[in-house]
Simulated scan of single mutants.
Amino acid sequence: MHGEYKVPGGKLVVVDLEEEAGALRGVRVSGDFFLEPDEALDAVNGALEGAPADADAAALAARVSAALPPGAHLFGVTPEGIGIAVRRALAQATEWAAHDWRLIRTAPQEPALHMALDEVLTTEVAEGRRPPTLRIWEWAAPAVVIGSFQSLRNEVDAEGARRHGITVVRRISGGGAMFIEPGNTITYSLSVPQSLVSGLSFADSYAYLDDWVLGALGEMGVRAWYQPLNDIATEAGKIAGAAQKRIVSGGGAVLHHVTMAYDIDADKMTEVLRIGREKLSDKGTASAKKRVDPLRRQTGLGREEVIDRLVGAFRGRYGLTEDAVTDEELARAEQLARTKFATPEWTARVP
């Protein structure tokens, strides 16, 4: 069995092993990380040899930590990263390079149709009818997108939304409300097979699926990191929020979508969103306006150039073939938008 895991902000760790009678055998850890002294690698392999095959990543990491000789140093890898790589080997997880990645960049779409396209395309990936897909969104209208479990009245000032002509829609993933204005927002979705995140915890899968974004931002001069659970942050403030939804049909798939603030009208945002003190209390700021620091200021680049660089970074790592939504997929999404995502029953399902 073979498992790989790119430690967010670090290096690649690879584990090859066999499972025999419920235990790990022939464990070999490798990668492009740094480890001192050399014999510490033997200690790592020895710690994992014979470990229960049902041990979780935390238990495996604890075995590795306990076995490291005094004064050992790990650079670009952590015991937790090694534990995750073991779990991915046991789960027979697939790697990024094993997939034929597709890119969809469409004309601007209405908010409800975007919600529907996410559900339809990810279901297609789960059923094996579509390869894993990166979709770049373009917005035809301003919107507030609330999470699947949020209360409509608690999150959105209805009068403020009406005054500014903003449509409110609810997505199928959890997480918080996103304030959207065409031209000021960069949004993308990844529809990936469940096998890509096998062996990862729900929390670890967020950073794993966006490691390429952090690399791309770094190339644009923005030092960014994942702030658990689902924020992409910089020293100047939050620049993006991520959310996920698991689709369990077929072989299973994960929808991972991210909204990035390229520019923002902070005054309008606070007139439309109800952002309470409790939500801000763990963000180190007393003002919603100060939470978000747009990419326009941090990069000095035009929005289209930022998107092109993001796409280029993904293509450079994993390959990317131009694609489009099929007529059948679009018809299903349009029907779903009408019957679900544009209906008050769905939008106000949590009043």
Rank of each mutant, 00 (worst) to 15 (best):
R349W: 08
T133P: 13
A66Y: 00
T285E: 04
R223Q: 12
F202I: 14
S65R: 14
F34H: 11
G284P: 07
G218L: 05
A40M: 08
A216D: 01
K238I: 05
Q109G: 02
V248T: 13
E322F: 02
V350R: 07
L152D: 04
I172F: 06
I146R: 00
A93M: 04
L134N: 09
A91G: 03
T259M: 12
G237H: 00
L60D: 02
A66N: 01
G22D: 08
A112Y: 00
K279V: 07
G276F: 08
A224G: 04
R277N: 12
L280G: 01
W139L: 06
M1D: 09
P344I: 03
V144S: 00
A66M: 05
Q92F: 11
F75P: 08
G83M: 06
R317T: 00
A337P: 00
V64P: 01
G215W: 10
V14Y: 00
Y226H: 15
E119F: 02
A107D: 15
S198F: 11
V7A: 10
V192G: 03
M260F: 15
K6P: 12
E49D: 12
G71W: 01
V77Y: 05
V350F: 11
P193D: 10
T106W: 03
A51V: 03
D210A: 05
R296P: 09
T133G: 13
T78K: 02
D32L: 08
D157P: 07
R332S: 13
F202D: 12
Q194N: 08
G252A: 07
G83S: 03
V64I: 13
Q298R: 11
T347L: 05
P132M: 09
E328M: 12
L301Y: 03
S189V: 00
G71A: 07
G71C: 10
L301D: 01
D323T: 04
G218Y: 02
L17Q: 09
E235V: 15
D42R: 05
H257E: 03
E4M: 14
A324D: 12
T123M: 14
A342M: 10
R246H: 10
P52L: 10
L12R: 07
S30Q: 13
V125W: 01
L60I: 07
T185A: 15
E95A: 15
A207D: 14
E36A: 15
R332C: 11
W96C: 11
P142W: 03
D267V: 14
S249R: 06
G9F: 11
V350K: 04
E124A: 15
E219S: 14
F149H: 07
T78D: 09
A313G: 15
A59Y: 06
R135K: 08
T339Y: 04
L17V: 09
Q150M: 14
N184G: 13
G22R: 00
E95N: 13
I239H: 00
R291H: 11
T321W: 02
T123Q: 13
F341C: 06
A337T: 02
T347S: 04
V197D: 03
I239A: 04
V213G: 08
P351Y: 08
V77H: 05
E18A: 07
L301M: 15
A98M: 06
I136Y: 02
A93C: 07
E20H: 12
A98Q: 10
A47L: 11
A116Q: 02
